[in-house]
Design a protein around this nucleic acid. Structure first.
Length: 453
RNA sequence: UCCAGAGUAGCUCAAUGGUAGAGCGUCCGGCUGUUAACCGGAAUGUUGCAGGUUCGAGCCCUGCCUCUGGAGCCA
């Protein structure tokens, strides 16, 4: 039976007849025997295997090169040399698949840019193995966080028929050939359909029945964004809470980010250490800081005042009614707050129709959580639960109420105050790892002009 | 989409307008309980693509492509 290397390395005592299966990272030959470094992806560390000349299978030792796959049986013994606690003394080696001289991964470090061009092989590198193990672990943490709080996981549709959610450009889904706009009624769904840009509206429907829900799934934006923080396909987490206001929403967002940082520190130590070494020296301090310190909360109007009085020359103007630019967000979180910052109560005119109008008639119950280095990771709001006001908001934003009839029904029948937010999973991962390009925290990135693999 | 920078060996990078190189990797040999081992030797190029200037272009000019950083849009 196969044992994963992470379990072998965690052993407290030696063992007989252990079987490992994995890929050779490097081989060092000595007179009469060889060292193999075997990795199976279960952890960052390799297992050192000692293969004596004459061991069954060792006749193929020269083909057990970097990148080759192998099965090894042997005894786990304490290593007599420095550098590792355990080593496997092989009693049998089986070459499964060799790798020729063209195998592109060297023992030396590669740049993430180069590894991106071989996305099918990069999970075999230390860095990307670590990133994707952490991604998996954090996906688990997301579910754990919400399930422990009695949130119900809702699978919102990926194909959607509403063409005006206002969250960005959408990808068209069609089975038509030729001119796809000519007869939408002849299309597969009998109307124009798109890949979802957000599960929020559907999430609200379920929150208005199951109380607390969350979604966690792929989301698509057809925007021609060419930055290190945008992808055309990304994973979004969207909780929605019935009987909840903006305060509760901000509390949840803050608790969530803290919980994710805490989880990474507790469960991803070995991989975090690699990020600290090669990606971001301060990753541990940053995560601890986020866990320990309360986030700073600033109303939008106050944020504008802070920016104006900062004495700082900004490239973009700071004025009430204008969106905060990257440079403004960066100042607020990195220099003013020196911690994550939550900005709330934004002007009505720069936010979508579904956000709740405040008593002042000018601002809405929106909130953004900004983190140092990344900018916005959470955008959320208390939703407008008053039917009349919702319809008024649609008119204000020049939207057609017919397109949102079912959404308005949620206010027509048993409406409740409710709130939620959206969080980009990849941006969270960037924050937790220090990795600066979104293409490097998603297995196969989809960006403008790039759908390789 | 806009601004800036960069494309040279498998990778990371050198190369006054004048014969295209190094380190690593690869291959061959040696040495060693080794640790991104070490020592010696060898092979490896349409200098991103297409034009232009010049006696001569990796280098200068024009267009295109790709990548990187920043910006916008956002998560």
């Amino acid at each position: 039976m196969r044992t994963l290397i992470k379990h072998i390395l965690a052993s407290t005592e030696p063992g007989d007849s252990i079987t490992v299966k994995g890929w050779v990272r490097t081989r060092r030959d000595s007179k009469g025997f060889s060292f193999l470094e075997l990795n199976d992806g279960s952890c960052l560390a390799n297992l050192q295997v000692v293969v004596d000349a004459g061991t069954p299978g060792s006749e193929h030792i020269t083909r057990l090169v970097t990148g080759a796959s192998a099965v090894v049986e042997g005894k786990l013994v304490p290593s007599p040399a420095q550098g590792q606690k355990w080593e496997l003394r092989a009693s049998r080696v089986e070459l499964i698949g060799t790798a020729d001289a063209a195998y592109p991964l060297q023992k030396k470090g590669h740049t993430p840019e180069f590894l991106r061009t071989i996305a099918h092989l990069r999970p075999r590198s230390n860095l990307f193995g670590a990133i994707f193990r952490l991604r998996s672990r954090l996906a688990f943490a997301v579910h754990q966080f919400f399930q422990e709080r009695d949130f119900v996981y809702v699978h919102t549709p990926i194909i959607t028929g509403s063409d005006c959610e206002g969250a960005g450009e959408m990808f068209r889904v069609t089975s038509l050939k030729g001119n796809i706009d000519e007869k939408p009624e002849a299309d597969f769904f009998g109307k124009k359909t798109y890949l979802t840009v957000s599960g929020q509206l559907e999430g609200e429907a379920f929150a208005c029945a199951l109380s607390n829900i969350y979604t966690f799934g792929p989301t698509f934006r057809a925007e021609n964004s060419n930055t290190a923080r945008h992808a055309a396909e990304f994973w979004m987490i969207e909780p929605e809470m019935a009987f909840c206001d903006l305060q509760g929403d901000m509390d949840l967002g803050e608790a969530f980010i803290k919980a994710m940082a805490q989880h990474a520190l507790e469960h991803c130590g070995e991989d975090l250490a690699l990020f600290a070494k090669f990606v971001d020296k301060g990753v541990h301090e940053r995560l601890k800081f986020v866990v320990e310190r309360p986030f700073v909360r600033v109303p939008y109007t106050e944020a504008i005042g802070i920016l104006k009085q900062s004495g700082r020359q900004f490239e973009f103007p700071v004025e009430y009614g204008l969106n905060l630019q990257s440079e403004h967000e960066r100042f607020l979180t990195e220099e003013y707050a020196k911690s994550p910052a939550t900005v709330f109560n934004y002007p009505r005119e720069i936010k979508p129709f579904y956000m709740r109008l405040n008593e002042d008639g000018k601002t809405v119950t929106a909130m953004d959580i900004l983190v140092p280095g990344i900018g916005e990771v959470i955008g959320g709001a208390q939703r407008e639960e008053r039917l009349d006001q919702l319809l008024d908001n649609m008119k204000y934003q020049k939207l057609n109420p017919d397109d949102y009839a079912w959404y308005a029904d949620l206010r027509r029948y048993g409406t409740v105050p409710h709130a939620g937010f959206g969080l980009g999973f990849e941006r969270l991962l960037m924050f937790l790892t220090g990795v600066s390009n979104i293409r490097d925290v998603i297995p196969f990135a989809r960006t403008p002009g790039n759908a390789e693999f």
